[in-house]
Every structure is written in structure tokens, then in C-alpha cells.
Simulated scan of single mutants.
Amino acid sequence: MKTLTPSRKALLMVGVGAVLISFSSIMVGLTRTAPTTTAFYRFLFGGLGLLLIALLQNKPLLNGWKPLGVIIPAGIFLCCDLGFWHRSIHIIGPGLATLMTNLQVFIVAGAGVVFLKENPTKNFFLAIPLAVGGLYLILAPDWQDTGAAYELGIFFSLVSATSYAFYILFLRRSTVSRGADSALGNMTMISLTSAGILSIVIFGLGESFAIPEKKDWVFLLIYGLLCHGLGWLFIAKGIAGIPASLTGLVLLLQPTLAFVWDVLIFDRSFSITEAAGAGLTLSAVYLGSSGMNK
């Protein structure tokens, strides 16, 4: 069997992580907890699961206080991403909100070129608009009739996209600065930091931490441990081994595969246009990654 190069191995890790986090929307849809509470348990269960792995493997979480200068901002941006995304969904619907949030790919690519001095291939620059166009074909049917708060919903989703992009960049920085072996400690601390921030938000808003039924515990545990904890651990392990710009593109697999799981698991009806959009996005992700060293 042919051995994968380090860059291909890193790309595979990010891809596997994207597949795992693509099940997030299914878990969120199945649980009946409030949106902010759902996000809190995602981070709490994911963080505690990663903490247990770190303790069993005797892995250090931090080497001094310096890494917190990257980890804490990553946690803040991750909370902002989810918080503003959830709010934009209530105003402009899940389709348009998800499309707008995934415009992170342009922000991450721009930061990669300008600040990280990355030099993407021509295929990559072609792949980005193709991938976003594919997402448009998938998500456009879910756009709802917009009301007076349309501009506010667009603003929230753009804040979400920017926060998502900065989270990706800070996560990458945390791994680059400390080495690939630090991914477990980084994601543990980011997750628990995010849980702490959201607990303050929930208290401040007077919302409840209650989990309604036993089945909600199951969905939240899967959401936290597998979708968030394991999924982002794979991404954190691979993110330093590929360009930041490519990471943003590969993460577009999340909303695309979420559509595929919806069709396969929940027997969702779909149109030729939506199917073409999924195919286009998947092809674009492959195209964008095809220029890497084999």
C-alpha cells in the first residue's frame, strides 16, 4: 500500500473531521434543548471527553500560560460563530444563513494569501466559487420569505462567517505554534473555554440548562463527543499540515454532507438542482485539493 505524504495525511484528517462535524445538524435537529443550551452541552461534553482522553494518555493540556493567548480567542470566536449563526437562522432561515456563514472560505483564503504568504494553485481559485455556487444550489430552496429584519439577519450571518474564519485561523495557529501533538490539549481547552463562556451567557439571559428527556441526553452526547470532540480533534491534528486556505475549502464538506445525510437518513425529497449542487461542491473540494503534493 502506498504511504501517504504528510500533507495528504493532514488533508485526510481534516476531511474525516469535516465528515464527523457534518452530522451536527442532525443531532441539533433531534434534540429539544434551547439553541444556546445545545451549544453549551456540545462544548461541555466534547471538552470533558477530550479531557478524559488526555488524562488517560497522560497528555499535557498546556505548557505554561502563553498558549492561552491563542486558545481563549479561538474559544470566543467559536462561541460567536454559533451564537450569531443560530440567531441568523431565526431571521433569514437555515439555508441562507448557512450559505452566508460558509463564506468563511473567502476570508480564510484571503488571510492565507496576505498574512501567511500562501500561494494557492489556479485550481484552488477556480474551486472556491464553484464550491460556493454548489452550496447555493443546495441551500437556496430553503430560503424563507424575508421580512423587515432581513438586513439584521444578513449582518448576523456575516459576523458568524467572520468569527468562523478567525476560529479556524486561531485553531491553526495554536497547533502550528505548539506542534501537532498539542491538538488534543488545544481542543480540550478551546471546548471548555467555550462552555464556560456560554454558561455565563445562559445565566445572563436567564435561560435553562435543563435537558428535557433521556433521548436528548443521547443526542447531546453524540453531538458533543463525536461531532464536536472527535471531529474537531481530527481537524486540529491535520490543520497545521495543509494551507489555511485549503482548510476553509475542505470544511465546506460539512453543509454539503449534512444535505446528503438528510436525504439518506431522513428520506428528504430533493430536486435535480440540489443534487447537482452537492455534486458540484464535492467536485470543487476535490479540485481545490488536487494541486497538493502527491
Rank of each mutant, 00 (worst) to 15 (best):
T101K: 00
H228D: 06
G238E: 09
V260H: 10
L61E: 05
L184T: 02
G196F: 01
A18C: 05
V105P: 10
Q254M: 07
V28W: 06
R268P: 02
W217V: 09
A195F: 01
M292F: 00
F219H: 14
F106S: 03
F43G: 05
A149D: 15
P243E: 02
L220Q: 14
F77C: 03
T5C: 02
F40I: 07
I211A: 12
V113E: 10
V218P: 06
S22E: 09
F115C: 11
V260A: 13
T101P: 01
G206Y: 04
S177A: 15
L198M: 12
T188D: 03
L184A: 03
G46S: 08
A180D: 14
Y164E: 13
R32T: 09
L253D: 09
A165F: 07
A34W: 04
L264R: 05
T37Q: 06
S157M: 09
A111S: 07
S22C: 06
F125L: 06
T31R: 05
L44T: 02
A195W: 00
V201E: 00
L30S: 11
T33D: 08
I128M: 09
G147K: 14
R178H: 14
L220F: 14
I272M: 12
I26T: 03
K9F: 12
A111Y: 07
Q254W: 02
G238V: 02
G93H: 00
A39Q: 05
G196E: 14
A165Q: 09
V14W: 11
P129A: 01
V114D: 05
V113G: 13
C80Y: 04
W65S: 15
A236V: 05
V16E: 05
L56V: 08
W232E: 12
L198F: 10
L226G: 05
T193L: 12
T101G: 04
Q254C: 04
T33Q: 09
G110Q: 11
Y164T: 12
F156E: 14
L62Y: 07
F156Y: 15
S24C: 02
L158K: 08
A195S: 07
L61W: 01
A74L: 01
G277H: 11
I72P: 00
A39L: 07
L225W: 04
Y286F: 15
G133T: 00
A258Y: 04
N293S: 13
I76D: 00
P60V: 13
G229I: 10
I190N: 03
L137W: 02
G231N: 13
G46I: 05
L68H: 04
K214I: 15
L280K: 09
F170V: 11
M100S: 12
L30N: 05
L11C: 08
T38V: 02
